[in-house]
Design a protein around this nucleic acid. Structure first.
Length: 496
RNA sequence: GCCCCCAUCGUCUAGGGGACUAGGACGUGGCCCUUUCAAGGCUAAAACAGGGGUUCGAAUCCCCUUGGGGGCACCA
């Protein structure tokens, strides 16, 4: 195998948001490059104008940026092999096609789509393997095809050998053998002058000096074709690595059907990029028998191709959630505050706080809240419901049912009494600290003959508007006496 | 239909002939902690798909079966 400098690439088509499968492969590409001092190249495979989805390029770039996969060459950064858009490299593909035509490795095919359809239907009925029947391999056949289609429009097809076998060396899977008779005379150049992947990929990977092609295993069946094209063009074949698929819960390839998400959707749901990176990188690769949380630096330091797995992995959202929680808790308070503020300052419809809350949020105030919520939140998006009551300028509006809860469902008067006792006590409290509050409320509960938990819940809902909240007295200490007393008073009124 | 790939707890995985009464993690159950919710601690259940070989010895190597996945476009 070659000793060329390591150069890997991600080569997405602009057909929408890149999903986790392709991103996971990109992570391996990036990791291989970064761990070897090599280069990671981004190339846009925009050769199918029919499938083009506007905005895709930005989705791709933003996904990579979000995950921290910086590219050394490609869109925006340029590079010695620019342009990095295949639609701007047509001359290269035409020249390659001409060479293949001249050397007899390819031929022009005038068959109409209709004829090809018929051909395939016939083959299916006869239970024969589908594939081009070779009509246009001879001048007579070409004439016939032209006559039948009534058009001069043609494609360039590869003339695959009919005998022998082609052995594809895959670093992960070893030598994979294919009978040449099974290799189709694939279209290399379409009638619109654009190349197919089968031509563009060998040409570009050669031109861009790609040393390792890491791509999904769905490409394995066409790998022998690619090898043949590389050879016909006189190019050195890169190291091939076909990564296993990521599967949905039903074990079929992960797709939109399963709610397969793009990186940007994870971002918008409140996941941390380092957690998504960690989780994805561990789908098909492992460091050892126990390490789950691995920093980006350690991934780079320890990544090696020989620990890549061959078998497909089912995507486990619950484990991702757990891992995201791990990363959230591992953040410093300051960093947590920065990220959560960025989230909370978004418009309400995007998961931020209501418009009534003035932006920007106070960093210092938020920093005091962070220790109370950090370990009870798995997603940034969940932070809002845990934290909003701290910021609401007009207080909270608890539901009566919520306030009464189970213990006081049938004794509203008692709840009102307890709460007003708590109010009076609070108003008279000079030392507004969590410790003092806790002590005072415990004593009160004892004096009134109510379980502390029940009393606390009453106060909790009154102050936070919810029955699930960060620790009560600590939250109240941060909120401040004035606001707490106000909210207690309002709750008492609500019950009376 | 044909071709190719894959196969350890429900899921992600460790394991590359003896260290395996098969380890870790997520999830699940139980207990502890506890002002809610989390977090944390302890603990439990849970797997080598089946069958043949090879070998003194197989989760590990080979073959077959079964199962799962992918591919067979002028899409990538």
């Amino acid at each position: 195998m070659s000793n060329r400098p390591v150069r890997t690439r991600m080569a997405p088509s602009p057909t929408g948001m890149p999903h986790v499968g392709i991103l996971r492969t990109a992570i391996f590409d990036w990791l291989l490059a970064r761990s070897t001092g090599g280069a990671f190249i981004l190339r846009i495979e925009d050769t199918d104008r029919n499938r083009y989805v506007p905005g895709s390029l930005e989705y791709i770039l933003e996904s990579l940026r979000w995950l921290g996969l910086d590219w050394d060459e490609g869109p925006e950064v340029g590079g010695p092999h620019a342009p990095y858009f295949q639609s701007q490299r047509l001359d290269l593909y035409h020249a390659a096609a001409e060479r293949l035509l001249a050397s007899g490795h390819a031929f022009r095919c005038y068959c109409s789509p209709e004829r090809l359809d018929e051909m395939r239907n016939r083959q299916r009925e006869l239970k024969q393997p589908p594939g081009y029947d070779g009509l246009c391999k001879t001048p007579e056949g070409q004439a016939e095809a032209r006559r039948r289609s009534g058009s001069e429009s043609y494609v360039v097809r590869f003339d695959a050998p009919d005998e022998g076998e082609t052995v594809v060396p895959d670093l992960l899977r070893g030598d994979v053998r294919f009978e040449n008779a099974r290799i189709d005379d694939a279209v290399l150049l379409k009638s619109d002058g654009y190349p197919t992947y089968h031509l563009a990929m060998p040409v570009d990977d050669h031109e861009m000096e790609i040393s390792h092609v890491i791509r999904g295993e769905e490409w394995l069946p066409s790998a022998p074709l690619h090898k043949l094209v590389f050879e016909a063009l006189g190019y050195e074949l890169p190291v091939l690595i076909h990564t296993p698929s990521i599967l949905g819960p039903d074990r079929s390839k992960l797709s939109k059907r399963h709610g397969a998400k793009s990186a940007l959707e994870y971002r918008d749901e409140g996941y941390l990029p380092e957690a998504v990176f960690n989780y994805l990188a561990l789908l098909g690769w492992s460091l050892d028998d126990r390490t789950e949380i691995i920093s980006r630096e350690d991934f780079v330091r320890h990544f090696s191709l020989d620990r890549l797995l061959r078998s497909p992995a089912v995507f486990n959202g619950e484990k991702l959630d757990w891992m995201n929680g791990e990363y959230m808790r591992a953040l410093s308070d300051e960093e947590f505050a920065r990220r959560v503020i960025a989230w909370l300052e978004k418009p309400e419809e995007d998961g931020g706080l209501p418009a009534s809350v003035a932006r920007p949020l106070s960093f210092d105030f938020t920093l005091r809240i962070v220790p109370l919520v950090k370990e009870r939140v798995k997603l940034l998006s969940k932070a809002r419901e845990m934290m909003d009551f701290f910021y609401l300028p007009d207080g909270v509006e608890p539901e009566v049912d919520e306030l009464l809860g189970k213990p006081f469902r049938d004794d509203r008067a008692r709840a009102a009494l307890l709460l007003s006792e708590a109010l009076v006590l609070s108003e008279g409290l000079a030392d507004w600290t969590s410790e003092a509050l806790l002590e005072a409320y415990r004593a009160l509960a004892g004096r009134l003959g109510v379980k502390f938990g029940d009393l606390a819940m009453l106060i909790r809902v009154a102050v936070t508007g919810r029955s699930v909240s960060p620790p009560l007295t600590e939250s109240m200490a941060v909120l401040g006496k004035e606001r707490c007393v106000l909210r207690l008073r309002r709750a008492v009124q609500l019950l009376q």
